[in-house]
Amino acid sequence: MHPKLNIWSACRALSVRSRPIFHWPQQCTAAAQARSIWIDSPSTSQRFPDQNASNLHPFDVSPSAQEPAPSENDVALSQLQMAAYGLDPFDPEVEGHKFGMPSLPLPRDLHHKHRYDSVVVQLTKLLMRDGKLSKAQRDMAMILNYLRTSPPPKVSPLRPLLPGSPAPSQLPLDPVLYLTLAIDSVAPLVRMRAYKGMAGGGRSLEVPVPLEARQRRRTAFQWILDVVNKKPTKGSGRAMFPNRVAEEIVAVVEGRSGVWDKRQLMHKQGTAARANLNNPQLRKKGQ
């Protein structure tokens, strides 16, 4: 019978052990987790300086000083004991992994090709010129840093952002959210599609077509870039283009940007042309 299935071995495994059966390589993990701080936990502020003063100087903390390393004999003995208790001493969950095995399936951001937010990746590629992705990424990092350091936006009631958006004071510390909110708020819902000659007399038939989320973001960001490219430069250096983009994004959130008018115009055209959806020719084409 396999030892794991033996009920007595399981009882033995539950018994009180006088000494540790296995030397856990991760000595300070528990302490570290106890000390770990969450940015929004209220206890952070009290705990932070104390740790610094008491625990965090490298001179008197050395693992070898605290406990002598176990000899090979001890390790072998503990492995034998584990085998006796019905546990696998070479289980990959236990042996050879300092931080344990990752839980599967892996979260999206652990894959190096998907490590950034999808909106940020899309907008970065729209920023890219001449195939220079690395430069575009640096520009995007600077845009996000600008948003992080600029004062909280004053949202205009005339140009409301997406419903359910957080308070403006919370936006700068989450620049990705700030950017996403700005883009999604001005993104148009439809685009106009022209069917040539279908309106009769050689005129084209304008029909509104709904857009996917990615398409909407792309349109909105292209509009923003159009505005940015028409702005005069204010200085030289690598931070200047990103600064202009970031200023326009702040202007969008504050309702000052001309991009809002473009969106409104597009929606107006869509509303006016929606009757064209019932055009018999179009229906015929659809069939």
Partner: peptide
């Protein structure tokens, strides 16, 4: 508030 992650060993 600049690094939005838990600061732990990992």
């Amino acid at each position: 508030g600049v690094l939005r992650k838990t600061v732990d060993e990992a």
